[in-house]
């Protein structure tokens, strides 16, 4: 479904990613973890080309992505992304946030898009908020709208960049619940998170990054209970699961 080979990325002299190989299959939920600065967010951003790689190949659905500027919009339309800080469009209502891309990018019929947007909002539990502006929402509600907005493009894969890190603790649950529902529906997801419980309960695979390389890539059960990797054990002890 989505495959990354030998991904290198530097910012100036700083080498952030030093040769990452990863493949995610359809319907898989992969959680990326690692200490801050390990490169997990940067890697995620490479997967929808918000960062362009210095080296390496990304293949989506068997097609190698050409990282040319005019090609990227088409690719990004198929790769959804949810950000740590939501990044909702403050000048548009919740419904308009969800409708924007299908209308503008896919040029779908407005009536049809509206119907679909209402359905998606219902799915994330925010039907009654369709007409309000984002500044009237709690953090958890904002993030659920952001997920709805990404879903409206019917992406092949959904990327989550620390989706609950900016939330008050009591609001984390509602967002994780929506994500879990999506996982159960078979959505392909790559999630950067510090929520170990989510990783344990929902992820098919856990990938641990450290200093720009993958140091462990195993199924969740193995990762949390039978890992032999020293750095993983250290990390697990630190986050205390």
């Amino acid at each position: 479904m989505i495959k990354a080979e030998n991904i290198h990325k530097s910012f100036g002299d700083l080498k952030v990613l030093k040769g990452i190989d990863m493949e995610v299959h359809r319907g898989e939920v992969v959680v990326l973890i690692g200490v801050s600065g390990s490169g997990k967010s940067t890697f995620l951003r490479c997967l929808n080309f918000l960062e362009l790689t210095n080296e390496g190949v990304i293949t989506i659905d068997g097609k190698q992505v050409n990282q040319k500027k005019d090609n990227l919009a088409k690719i990004r339309a198929e790769v959804g992304m949810v950000f740590q800080h939501f990044n909702l469009f403050p000048h548009k209502t919740v419904l308009e946030n969800v409708m924007e891309a299908p209308l503008m990018v896919k040029k779908m019929d407005k009536v049809q898009v509206k119907k679909m947007a209402h359905e998606i909002l219902k799915k994330v539990g925010l039907s009654e908020k369709a007409a309000v502006y984002p500044n009237k929402l709690s953090g958890g509600q904002k993030q659920r709208v952001a997920i709805a907005r990404a879903l409206a493009m019917e992406p092949k894969v959904l990327l989550f960049d620390e989706p609950t890190s900016a939330l008050d603790p009591e609001l984390v649950g509602e967002v994780l619940q929506v994500m879990q529902n999506l996982a159960e529906e078979g959505m392909t997801m790559i999630v950067v998170t510090h929520e170990m419980k989510f990783a344990k309960n929902v992820a098919d695979r856990v990938i641990m990054l450290d200093e720009g390389v993958i140091i462990e890539d195993s199924d969740a059960e193995t990762f949390f209970n039978h890992s032999t990797n020293e750095r993983t054990l250290q990390f697990l002890e630190m986050v205390d699961v």
């Binding site: 918000l50 005019d70 990004r76 891309a101 503008m104 952001a146």
Partner: peptide, 19 residues
């Protein structure tokens, strides 16, 4: 983040600026 969110939805640079 506004520009990034828009680009991530598949909107190109000119749509992102305009909308």
């Amino acid at each position: 983040g506004q520009r990034e969110a828009s680009l991530a939805l598949g909107m190109n640079s000119s749509l992102t600026m305009r909308r």
